[in-house]
């Protein structure tokens, strides 16, 4: 199995916290179970509808190749097996910023990724941020998880 950078299950808390601004995209606010991460993410709800209360699994990975070879940067069609097969919604983007938030014991690290303009903010324990680098190309993979 390929090694991913981050894996967790999130629950959608809120849709469009600042009001709906765009027709086909919603900004979701979500919180994870395992690492207690906070996330804001722009999702193309036109193709992948999301609702408050839904749970989904989110994975961040540098490559879709199952054997872990680095991503070539090109799209290669053909029915090759890839990590994406198991997921419903995949985006590719770039990490452009790491920042710290808060101070003292509850200091958090913010990771900002832009998936072609759809943005993600991932906030959590600083140790998680250590795995990420600036200018890293990332895939985000999402799959809805049953409420059960």
């Amino acid at each position: 199995m390929v090694e991913t950078l981050f894996e967790d299950i999130f629950r959608v808390d809120q849709l469009d916290p600042d009001g709906k601004k765009f027709d086909k995209v919603n900004r979701i606010e979500a919180r994870s179970d395992q690492f207690d991460m906070y996330m804001q993410l722009d999702v193309n709800t036109d193709v992948y509808p999301m609702h408050v209360g839904e749970k989904f699994m989110m994975v961040l990975a540098t490559t879709l190749n199952l054997d872990g070879t680095p991503d070539s940067g090109f799209f290669s069609p053909g029915g090759r097996k890839s990590l994406a097969d198991k997921f419903d919604y995949v985006m590719h983007g770039k990490l452009y910023r790491i920042n710290e938030e808060g101070s003292g014991a509850n200091v958090k690290a913010d990771i900002y990724v832009s998936f072609g303009g759809l943005l993600m903010l991932l906030r959590g324990d600083p140790s998680i941020a250590a795995k990420f680098e600036l200018d890293q190309r990332l895939f985000i993979l999402m799959r809805k998880v049953d409420k059960a």
Partner: peptide, 8 residues
């Protein structure tokens, strides 16, 4: 964590 600080 030092690395994180540096990357920030």
């Amino acid at each position: 964590l030092e690395n994180v600080a540096q990357s920030i």
